[in-house]
Amino acid sequence: MLQPLVIGLGRSGSGLHLRTLARLAPRIAATGDPLVALPVIGCDPRAGAPGSAGTPGELTAVGTLEGALALIDPATTVAHVCTPPRVRYDVIARLAGHGVRRLIVEKPLAASMDELDALVRLRERADLDVVVVSHWTGSRLAGRLRRLVRDETLGPLRRITVDQHKPRFLRSLTTDGHPSALDVEIPHSLALALDLAGPAELRAARCWDLRCEDRVLPRLGGAHVELAHRSGVTTLLRSDLGAAVRQRDVVCEFEDGTATAHFPLGEDDDHAQLVVQGADDEAGHHVFRDDALTGFLEGAYRGFASGTAGAMNFALASATARLLCVARERCAVVARPDAVPPAVLAPTPVATSPAGSR
């Protein structure tokens, strides 16, 4: 069996990875082919870190990475790196130095181009198998969108619009892991856009501040990103982190129809919806279960066990991270997204997707 080591017990480490692993391990074991060992080893230096208590049998929490490494066998460990992006390289380098080769890394992969390049070199030098969290692209819903694009059931794809809106006041006020709204929701939708439409150039990027009573958090109110794909598709990514309601929608406009994908909004329901207009055999409102993160982690663990986990995923994640780095560098700060005309920046060529990623 493979031993999970979760580094960082904040929202993603505890609320997502740990909780999902606790569900996944007994479910797989019940099939007679156990894959994920419990308890998970958790590492977080903060006293009273969220999730550090854990459910008995699910988590053994320690305060230092050295303490966590003393409890694991590198040959059977899968390290989940759930730290803020700016410290990920150092954590991964320490894991590699200890002999850990299998890693699941939260998005975005790196906070700067230099860090990304260093991580790519480290991966090659230390022969690391790195999977970057991208459960949107691994979801059943994304799979249906890919089939529509591939088969051209509705004609060629012309435009993608993604809306990821949610109120994120409390987390933004109490944590500092993300320097801007570009690092919160946009990595999910950016990876999906590259996966569906292929390599792209940045056309525009802008952020605005998050305002709450007497507090102003620079660049954390939301973000817009505009892309021009080499395939001719255009993409608009919108994320409002001061929204009054939640929304996770992807609209794919084809030459002969439209597909609107509604991703699950939270942990209370794991069903996706797809509304297709314009094709007799595909048209309709489809509802289906889509527990994307559980499926993503199970696929990653099975890939680790068979030695086929991370290559394609890492290529897409690297392309996504490089485009995010360009967006950060070129980001214009505006008052509100609807108060400023969408001034388009000059296209910035960047290697954003592996060949054949479509």
Rank of each mutant, 00 (worst) to 15 (best):
L192P: 01
K166H: 13
D129S: 14
D127M: 09
L145T: 09
S139V: 08
R171W: 15
W136S: 01
L170F: 15
F169K: 04
E124A: 14
H178L: 03
V133M: 09
L154R: 02
R147V: 04
L173S: 06
E152F: 03
L173C: 09
R146Y: 04
T137E: 14
A126D: 14
L173E: 08
T174C: 08
L157K: 03
S189V: 12
L154P: 00
A193K: 01
D176V: 07
H135A: 10
D163Q: 04
L145I: 13
E124F: 06
V120Q: 14
A193Q: 01
K166F: 15
L119E: 11
S172Y: 08
L190W: 12
R147K: 12
S134R: 12
H178Y: 15
T174L: 14
L141K: 07
D163L: 10
A126I: 01
V130P: 12
L194E: 08
V184P: 00
R144W: 07
D151P: 07
L157F: 01
L119C: 09
L173D: 01
R146H: 08
R125E: 15
T161M: 08
R158F: 01
L173Q: 08
H135Q: 12
D129Q: 07
L173M: 14
P187F: 08
L122T: 07
S134W: 02
R121L: 13
L194F: 08
V162A: 13
D127E: 14
A191T: 05
T175L: 10
E152N: 04
E152C: 05
P167Y: 12
T174D: 08
V131Y: 05
L148C: 05
T153I: 09
G177S: 06
W136Y: 15
S134Q: 15
V149P: 00
L157I: 02
L182T: 02
V131R: 04
H188T: 05
V132S: 09
L157D: 00
A118G: 12
E185A: 14
L122Y: 11
A200Q: 03
H165E: 08
T175K: 04
L148P: 00
R146C: 11
H188W: 07
E185Q: 14
P179T: 09
D163M: 03
V162I: 13
I186T: 13
V120Y: 05
R121T: 15
D129E: 14
L154A: 03
L154I: 03
P187V: 07
D183F: 11
H188Q: 06
A142V: 12
L157P: 00
S172I: 04
E152V: 08
A126H: 11
H165Q: 07
R140E: 14
L122Q: 10
R150Q: 05
G143V: 07
V184A: 09
R146F: 06
E124M: 07
V131I: 13
L190D: 05
A126V: 02
A197V: 11
R150W: 09
L196H: 02
R125H: 15
L170R: 14
R123G: 01
P199G: 06
G198L: 10
T175P: 10
W136I: 04
P156Y: 06
R123D: 01
H165S: 13
R140N: 07
L196I: 04
A181T: 05
H135L: 03
V162R: 00
L192N: 03
R147G: 06
R150V: 02
R158K: 10
D183T: 10
D163P: 00
